[in-house]
Computed example of a mutant assay.
Amino acid sequence: MSTAIATDHAPAPRARERGRVTQANVIRSEWTKLWSLRSTRWSLLAAVVAQGALGILVAAVQMNRWTHLSPHDRETYNSIDTGVGGYHLAQLAIGVLGVMIISSEYSTGMIRSSFMAVPKRLPVLWAKIAVFSSVTFVLMLVSSVVSFFVVQALSTQHHVQHAIGDPTALRVVVGTALFLTVLGVLATGIGALIRNTAGGIAFFVFLLFVLPGITAILPHTVGDSINPYLPLNAGFTVATSVFEDSHHLSPWGGFAVFCGYAALAVGAAMVGLLGRDA
């Protein structure tokens, strides 16, 4: 009788699993936190609109003004790069949000509750990266595909369109989503390392946008050797069909270098999480 009573009151296996600190449960928690913030929805909406609409807007203007464009502009027009050109603006929204998804928890003190629930700490970082990168990749891939096909439809009036099966087209469309995803991972690593929203965003902007401007004032022999390895220049290669400058890495080689920067930022954040108080 006592055995039967103990069995009746024992928690079900599924209930015990929900109460355990597993990576799946931490991911589920981070998913809830990500979508509970209004800033997240607005930032992702801005990224989707930028990635999906900017290229279409540029293509529409260029097609309407085709006869007013210079012969050089008409000759060098590339509907593949135009179709994914929205990443120039979308990267700002993705980068800022990547910093904020973890730095904002430090500013509010919520990170202490997260680490009390997950004492090992690193699963929290893995979960944030997994959730944010998955959402970013899906949204940016869909936006890139929509923009690409609409731009090609607009470009048919002057017969400068490309098919998705043309050389570099598919790689650029998918590569744009990959570039923005890794950019988000890099920004998340920076946010976890610096732990301050303003400081994290400032460092992100310096690393990706200010540093290339500094190298631009260096002698060409020096700048041409450094520029291809800067984070943004390396990452751009996988999202580019026609390069304006001959000094660049190969598409996948540059993307590998960019992934290395992201891995370095996440690795430094891991050391900080384990060695510093929240």
Results as ranks from 00 to 15, higher is better:
2 S>H: 13
3 T>R: 11
4 A>L: 13
12 A>E: 13
14 R>T: 13
16 R>P: 04
17 E>K: 12
18 R>G: 06
21 V>H: 05
22 T>S: 15
24 A>R: 14
25 N>F: 07
45 L>C: 10
48 V>R: 04
50 A>R: 06
51 Q>N: 10
54 L>D: 01
56 I>M: 01
58 V>C: 01
61 V>D: 05
64 N>Y: 02
64 N>Q: 14
65 R>I: 00
65 R>F: 08
69 L>E: 03
69 L>A: 10
73 D>P: 05
75 E>W: 10
78 N>K: 08
81 D>H: 06
101 I>V: 15
102 I>P: 01
106 Y>W: 15
114 S>W: 14
115 F>M: 11
115 F>W: 09
116 M>I: 13
123 P>F: 00
129 I>G: 02
132 F>L: 15
132 F>S: 07
134 S>P: 08
135 V>N: 04
139 L>W: 01
143 S>D: 10
152 Q>A: 04
155 S>H: 06
158 H>M: 11
160 V>G: 08
162 H>W: 07
163 A>T: 07
170 L>H: 03
179 F>N: 03
186 L>Y: 01
190 I>S: 04
196 N>C: 09
203 F>C: 08
223 G>A: 15
227 N>D: 11
228 P>I: 06
233 N>G: 09
234 A>Q: 06
239 A>H: 08
241 S>F: 04
244 E>R: 12
244 E>S: 14
246 S>G: 15
250 S>G: 14
251 P>G: 12
258 F>G: 03
259 C>V: 05
263 A>E: 09
263 A>S: 13
263 A>T: 13
266 V>H: 00
268 A>K: 02
269 A>L: 06
270 M>I: 15
